[in-house]
Nucleic acid binder design. Sequence first.
DNA 1: TAGTGATAGGTTAGAAATAGTCAAAAGGAA
DNA 2: TTCCTTTTGACTATTTCTAACCTATCACTA
Lengths: 146, 146
Amino acid sequence: MKSLADRIEEYLRFLIERSESKTLQMQRTELAETFGCVPSQITYVLSTRFTIEEGFVTESRRGGKGYIRIRQIDSSPGRISRGYNQREALAAIENLWKEGFLDGGEVELLKCLLNRHVLGLAEHERHLLRGRMLRAVYDLLGDNKG
Amino acid sequence: MKSLADRIEEYLRFLIERSESKTLQMQRTELAETFGCVPSQITYVLSTRFTIEEGFVTESRRGGKGYIRIRQIDSSPGRISRGYNQREALAAIENLWKEGFLDGGEVELLKCLLNRHVLGLAEHERHLLRGRMLRAVYDLLGDNKG
DNA sequence: TAGTGATAGGTTAGAAATAGTCAAAAGGAA
DNA sequence: TTCCTTTTGACTATTTCTAACCTATCACTA
């Protein structure tokens, strides 16, 4: 049995998916009435399900003609990196290990995940994916330090 | 003489086996009532019988409409598995951590690599990729044990 | 322009509904 | 006995949902 929040999320995701611009704008009160709940329930769903981590940005305006708007953000980074082949990726990982940013277990893990058979895909896509993965690792290590 | 835990395990395995998706979702309290035991007994069965070594991944949610979910992971390489969404993948990782197969650093690493924005791709492809990545992790952990 | 009322959405606290944790008691096999 | 597994229950954590109150914006009028 799905919770009300789950059903509202499902409904909104459907509408966004269907829309050309991956954007949805509506009135909070109206939506609440559709689901027979209190308006703050909508706020709750937005704040727990349509977060930046989930890939959504929400905006709103109060007062007459007020609205809530949900936008699914494009996750493609603007910048194009040229990607990494397996050998280059492993070398990068080795380096991080030598410099003490990764321990043995983490290196093992990364090596196996960056493997061409695990990643699959066509060569070019796979190289780009490795680039995104390595960037995420660098970002993670950077966060932990800062 | 079978213990209660054994009987609960048997029952759950039967239901999972019977289900198309090899997945079972139910409420802990309800199941406990079915067997006339305390809810924590269910937790006990899950943590001792439906482990990753046994080929299962469990997830749960507390609160209203909460649930426990058990998924039998597909171990046959030939067959196409349905993949993992981000939430499922993170739950699987959490489990590996709880069971001591991964340490904190490795979990952080995996969490960031399994993120939808890092993986990119179209949804279906991304889910399948997570499946391959998780399988590689399981294989790696299995090798280390064996 | 300033003021005012209507019409939105925002915030927060707390109750209710679940599941998780942990340690002690109970059982059972060697 | 001794050691390991099972079972229980009290306590904790999380999630959902509502209700009451707070704030921003608009439309209109003086």
